[in-house]
Amino acid sequence: GCCFDDVPANRIAMCEEGHIFCLSCSRRGAEVELGYRRTVLKCMTAGCTAVFPDSEAVLFLSKPVFEGLLRARQQSELKMAGLDSLVECPFCSYAAIVENDEDKEFRCQGPKCRKVSCRLCKALTHIPLSCEEYRKELEKNNVLSVQHKVEEEMSQALIRECPKCKTRFFKTEGCNKMTCPQCHTHMCYVCKIKIKDYSHFDQSPAGQPAQKKNRKYALCLLSVDPQLIMQMLIYVFFIFSNEYQ
Rank of each mutant, 00 (worst) to 15 (best):
T179A: 12
I193N: 09
C175G: 07
H186Q: 12
T185I: 05
Q182K: 15
S199F: 13
Q203T: 14
V190G: 00
K171Y: 06
A206I: 12
F201N: 01
G174M: 06
H200E: 07
P205A: 05
S199R: 13
V190R: 10
Y198T: 12
K194E: 15
Q203D: 09
V190E: 09
D202P: 01
F169I: 02
S204H: 08
F170C: 03
D197L: 07
M187N: 00
H200Q: 13
C191Q: 08
P181W: 09
K177C: 11
Q203Y: 06
D202T: 04
H184T: 11
P205H: 11
H184M: 12
C180I: 00
C180F: 02
K192T: 10
T172I: 10
Y189G: 03
A206V: 10
E173Q: 11
K196F: 14
T179P: 01
T179G: 04
K171M: 12
E173I: 02
K171S: 07
C183N: 07
T172A: 12
C183R: 09
T179C: 13
P181T: 05
S204F: 05
Y198P: 00
M178S: 03
P205Y: 09
H184I: 00
T172H: 07
T185S: 13
G174Y: 04
C183A: 10
K196V: 13
Q203E: 11
M178A: 03
F170K: 09
F170A: 11
H200T: 06
G174A: 12
H186K: 11
C188P: 02
Y189L: 05
C175N: 14
K171G: 06
I195G: 00
M187Y: 01
H200A: 08
T179F: 08
F170T: 05
K192M: 08
S204C: 07
C188N: 06
I193K: 13
K196W: 14
V190D: 06
H200V: 05
S199P: 04
H200C: 12
K177D: 03
H184V: 02
N176F: 03
K196I: 13
T172G: 15
M178Y: 01
T179D: 05
G174D: 03
T185G: 05
H200I: 09
N176A: 06
C188S: 07
K196M: 13
Y189W: 15
F169G: 01
E173F: 03
I193W: 00
K192G: 00
F169H: 03
F201C: 05
I193R: 12
Q203H: 13
C180P: 00
A206N: 12
S204P: 03
H184E: 13
H186R: 10
C191F: 11
M187V: 00
Q203W: 03
E173K: 08
F169L: 04
S204Y: 05
M187E: 02
H200K: 08
P205F: 07
K177F: 05
D202R: 12
K196E: 15
G174P: 06
S204R: 05
